[in-house]
């Protein structure tokens, strides 16, 4: 098994930490992992993206042109990464701020209203965990228990009391996933 993922959005949305938690979850189930951020001046208030690879074998390139899954959290990232999903691959996106919805018909497209759900939960910081939950509903490549032990490892102890909240957010994401039909531009719940 090998899963090549790009997560892209604004700086501050938790893009990099979501990737890190995914990578830690992979380690928890004895997989090889790589986490390659885009770094540089663009991170300051601009776009942020990270390539995460989980594999049963030694990972060759941590830097890729095409991906199995693109998790897209703003319009700039949609413009940049929709075309990089492999045919038959997955595009998951948050609808908040999206003006041009994806148009590809050779990939599977899913929507999540992560920003809205996070606001409803009363904590905007769990946004990335809602997105992660939606992704894991589509592709359960890591077990929830491994995500939680990954969280335990990546968070310092003083934040461990937040793990139940993160679990709740993941479940929220899992339960509010919609399928998007790009051909007809309609949503199926």
């Amino acid at each position: 098994m090998s899963e090549e993922i790009i997560i892209a959005g604004f700086g501050g949305q938790g893009v990099l930490s979501m990737g890190k938690i995914l990578a830690y979850s992979g380690i928890m189930q004895d997989q090889e992992v790589s986490w390659m951020p885009s770094y540089g001046p663009e991170m300051r208030g601009g776009t942020a993206n990270v390539t995460v690879i989980l594999s049963d074998e030694r990972i060759s390139s941590p830097y890729l042109k095409v991906y199995d899954t693109a998790i897209i959290l703003n319009q700039q990232s949609m413009d940049k990464f929709e075309s990089t999903v492999k045919p038959g691959g997955i595009l998951l996106y948050d609808t908040n701020g999206i003006s041009h919805h994806p148009t590809r018909t050779d990939i599977k497209i899913y929507q999540i209203e992560g920003a809205k759900l996070a606001a409803e939960m009363g904590n905007k910081k769990v946004f990335n965990m809602i997105i992660l939950g939606a992704f894991l509903k589509i592709k359960p490549i890591v077990k929830l228990e491994n995500v939680l032990s990954g969280l335990k490892k990546s968070l310092s102890e003083r934040y461990h009391h937040l793990i139940p909240l993160n679990k709740e957010a993941i479940t929220m994401g899992m339960n509010h996933l919609n399928v998007f039909n790009a051909e007809q531009q309609i949503i199926h719940s």
């Binding site: 992992v33 986490w35 390659m36």
Partner: peptide, 10 residues
């Protein structure tokens, strides 16, 4: 280089 320095792996 910057890639090996900035990336995370096991």
């Amino acid at each position: 280089d910057g890639l090996i320095g900035q990336m995370m792996e096991k």
